[in-house]
């Protein structure tokens, strides 16, 4: 599977990950499916996790509802979620797998205090039992 992410989207995800460090950041990915999945827009979401946000993120249901409304109103598709792993590799975790929804691209960035180390993306396999990595292009 291939996932194209426009450069300005990637830059915005990196800025968000750095700004929220050492907490995890999260947000929504928008784009199109024509000719392969392309992410061309991004919107930040507050990390609504109660308590320590350095190793977990949660998106508030009201924010999710707004994200779907934004997609509907603007004629774009909500194609995924991004979040950061501060001081940790960009590998989907068991926590990520337990909460994962089908269809969505889950973009993860590994972030340190002074840099973003890597960006990878995963999609839940149809079995729901594991992720498949997407080949990310910008």
């Amino acid at each position: 599977m291939k996932l194209r992410i426009q450069k300005q989207v990637m830059s915005e995800i990196f800025r968000h990950a750095m700004a929220d460090f050492p907490d995890e950041c999260c947000g929504f990915l928008y784009g199109t499916e024509e000719g392969g999945r392309l992410i061309h827009d991004v919107r930040r979401a507050p990390n609504a996790r109660q308590g320590d946000k350095r190793r977990r993120f949660t998106i508030d249901p009201a924010d999710y509802l707004q994200a779907e409304t934004f997609a509907r109103d603007n004629g774009v598709s909500l194609l995924g979620i991004y979040h950061s792993h501060p001081l940790h590799p960009a590998i989907a975790s068991e926590h990520d797998l337990k909460q994962a929804m089908p269809y969505f691209s889950y973009v993860i960035v590994s972030v340190f205090e002074d840099r973003v180390e890597e960006l990878r993306s995963f999609r839940l396999h149809d079995s729901g039992q594991h992720f498949e990595e997407e080949w990310v292009q910008s």
């Binding site: 995890e24 999260c26 996790r49 190793r55 977990r56 993120f57 949660t58 998106i59 249901p61 999710y64 509802l65 979620i81 979040h83 792993h85 501060p86 940790h88 590998i91 989907a92 975790s93 068991e94 926590h95 990520d96 337990k98 909460q99 994962a100 929804m101 889950y106």
Partner: peptide, 9 residues
Amino acid sequence: IPAIAGGCE
């Protein structure tokens, strides 16, 4: 509304 959450290991 699906639950959207996760985090590193």
